[in-house]
């Protein structure tokens, strides 16, 4: 019961208290407007290079933008606590670490999902991209799975936050890494083999591929493998991120660096 309370109430409280994003002055520019301009930029670059259709860029960038809340928010679970001097207090409590850390990721997944959904709908409307009605429900599923897997990477980012002081920098670097490697704007077939091989093990890659096929008229059954792969990758990152968090926590305690990174 206590674990459930930590998971749900603790996660929500942490989200509300730490992220400082719940003011419309930050939320609207960062989560609703910025992704639209990212979509427009790459759609226009795509038109310049005659590489892919607008739909390719709308879907790729809309799903990829979930990485902003997923990476930054999870990074802030450590960086924000440290900034407010509450990190040692949280980590000296006997609370189970699993509900403590995983609980904080649930609101983040929801946040990432909403950002992707909004960008997908408005980006499509802006550029006149048509998505079949039958693809809407499967796309919702894919967006949710992608936000989940991205949050798994966010957990790893949070763990890095126990060793690196500026989590905004690590979040930005990971965001750029995903932008280059995951086939968001450049088809995997056009990237060098080593890059597309790395992409296979990253969140987003399979989710974006599945979403593109769905928007192209494919059924959910046809992309089930891709969705399953995205889910599996997400689970691996969640487990890996949690293990890394525990390891870094133990190391930080041993070194006495919880407050200074």
């Amino acid at each position: 019961m206590t674990s459930l309370r930590i998971f749900f109430v603790g996660g929500l409280t942490s989200y509300r208290a730490l992220f400082n994003w719940l003011t419309p002055w930050i939320l609207i520019p960062s989560f609703l407007i910025a992704p639209l301009f990212q979509i427009l930029l790459f759609a226009y670059i795509g038109r310049t290079t005659h590489l892919e259709s607008d739909r390719f860029y709308v879907i790729g960038n809309a799903l990829q933008y979930a990485a902003v809340p997923c990476l930054f928010a999870m990074g802030n679970t450590i960086g924000g606590e440290r900034f407010q001097h509450t990190l040692p207090l949280v980590l000296t409590t006997p609370a189970g670490r699993l509900p403590l850390f995983i609980g904080r990721s649930v609101p983040v997944i929801a946040n990432g999902f909403v950002v992707s959904g909004f960008a997908l709908v408005t980006g499509s409307a802006l550029l006149g991209v048509h998505v079949p009605i039958s693809a809407v429900a499967p796309l919702v599923l894919v967006a949710a799975v992608t936000a989940f897997s991205c949050t798994g990477l966010g957990l790893c980012n949070a763990a890095l936050g126990l060793r690196v002081r500026e989590t905004a920098v690590t979040s930005n670097i990971l965001f750029g890494f995903l932008l280059v490697f995951c086939g968001v704007n450049v088809p995997l077939s056009s990237l060098p083999a080593w890059m597309s091989t790395i992409a296979e093990g990253l969140p987003l890659t399979h989710g974006i591929a599945a979403a593109r096929q769905l928007a192209g008229g494919a059924g959910l059954g046809k992309v089930a493998g891709l969705v399953g792969a995205e889910l599996l990758i997400g689970c691996i990152y969640v487990v890996g991120g949690y293990a890394l968090l525990r390891l870094m926590e133990i190391e930080s305690r041993r070194r006495g660096t919880l407050e200074i990174a």
């Binding site: 290079t49 930005n172 750029g176 280059v180």
Partner: peptide, 19 residues
């Protein structure tokens, strides 16, 4: 770092676009 990320993206976009 960010300009290098965009330089890499731009390179592959323009290269893949056969330009």
């Amino acid at each position: 770092i960010e300009p290098l990320i965009f330089a890499t993206l731009a390179y592959y976009l323009f290269k893949a676009g056969k330009q």
